[in-house]
Design a protein around this nucleic acid. Structure first.
Lengths: 246, 246
DNA sequence: GTGGCGATTATGTATATACATATTGAAACG
DNA sequence: CGTTTCAATATGTATATACATAATCGCCAC
């Protein structure tokens, strides 16, 4: 007779979750130091009175999360803590401004359609020349300029953008949903504001600014490059790390 | 008779992986737009000629990765693209400097043991007063100062730190391995260098700098707070996003 | 000793099955 | 006509089983 304990044996959580959190706790508390061999699957399945499959799925997940390392024939071991990877949430500027309780306003400063020059191609990581759309925009929080946006759109990848003036809708929300992106890269650094950006943000030239650049690809094709510049004190990026438990 | 096709049917990849990448491709290419209902588990299991369990595991993983949403009785649906989450790799400074092909050097500038004041408690998010260790350090790349480090260690959580002078080993590598961390938060912003930091980094006061602050907890207890300051052009953070496929 | 070889072992992947649970759509009822 | 009930359905979780695969241990020949 096969007894299946699908549901909550006691605490309303699945067995999978319980094994996961039990072992995570042991590792994160330091009870099982890096290098320590955790019990074999068959030992844990006996201990938890469940099948090996259930244990296997839990341990595989811990391995994928990077907490343990699994070696055939040898067992599973607590991994050395390594390069920390934190999750950085990139929000839409409108959302961010409104989260601050301020009124969001968008302004398109300039729009040029042109054949890509060498700089454009470098920014887009584009191999061959082709038409691009260059945009310059400002995002306001209340009365004050919040962010300056310099954007390039690869018109070969997104021909529909030719017909859009971007006077009322910002490029980000326009692109999202229209172009499925498969990969993105963000570069974050500090710079001193150059003259045009300083003017746009209403700060002194050379004043410290946070720059977030994003390059986006869709199925290997470069789609867009954007550079957001924020005045030093207006913006903080937050990245969190918590060992995943599912 | 049960036929099990554990291995590579053709391309040397597992069925699990194949289902995963097939569906990811459909979503990321836009063929299946947000809101689209993907085939039911039993349909996919027929299509791939495999068991429902195999399909279930693949779809569950896509759901965990955020690409699809699963609703009982209704099916699985392609999710609306949402707040982009990028993975930010936080490397040890030594590793980073050596990756640049430069000689790494570490210097401890100051070390003070004291009872936490209000500012310390704010930085550590510490409720009650207690002993803390305040450190100031410099990290060099070649001959030039690369980063300035201001660190607080909660001696209640890490009493062993009292006995360490940190003259030859930097706080980060000392803490890693000694203290299991369960949670970390990074804040990234641009600032103008204040006088002491400017002097330490050999730059002008007010010059733009990138600041990375990290707070670390171990099992709910604050462990350490550190502020790294980099001169504007010396350092760029990179965060990548690629829809996970396992 | 040392080098190779086969048995052993722990994990990796897949199947078929069982039952739980949430949700929806339709039927039954007041 | 609205509400309640119920059955159908798709997903969620677990079991027992089968076989593949990689790594290691120990044995044996040299």
């Amino acid at each position: 007779m096969t007894m299946i304990e699908t549901a909550d044996a006691e605490g309303g959580v699945s067995l999978h979750q319980r094994i996961l959190s039990d072992i995570s706790e042991k590792i994160l508390s330091g009870a099982w130091a890096p290098g320590h061999r955790i019990p074999f699957e068959h030992e844990l399945s006996a201990q938890y009175n469940c099948s090996r499959m259930t244990v296997n799925k839990a341990l595989s997940q811990l391995a994928k999360a990077g907490l343990i390392e699994r070696r055939r024939r040898s067992g599973s071991f607590v991994r050395q803590p390594q390069s920390q990877a934190a999750v950085l949430e990139i929000h839409d500027i409108r959302v961010e401004v409104e989260a601050l309780g301020l009124l969001y306003r968008y302004e398109r400063v300039a729009r040029h359609k042109r054949r890509s020059d060498a700089e454009d191609r470098a920014l887009l990581e584009l191999g061959v020349a082709g038409p691009v759309l260059a945009l310059e925009c400002r995002h306001f929080a209340g009365k004050r300029p919040f962010a300056h946006e310099q954007r390039l759109i690869n018109l070969t990848a997104v021909p529909e953008a030719s017909d859009e003036e971007f006077l009322t809708i910002a490029p980000s929300p326009w692109l999202i949903g229209r172009v499925p992106w498969s990969e993105a890269e963000h570069r974050i650094r500090a710079v001193g504001a150059d003259k045009p950006v300083a003017a746009a943000l209403d700060i002194a030239a050379g004043a410290p600014c946070l720059v977030v650049e994003r390059r986006t690809w869709s199925a290997e094709h470069p789609v867009t490059h954007v550079r957001f510049t924020y005045a030093a004190d207006s913006h903080t990026l937050v990245a969190r790390f918590r060992p995943s438990q599912g």
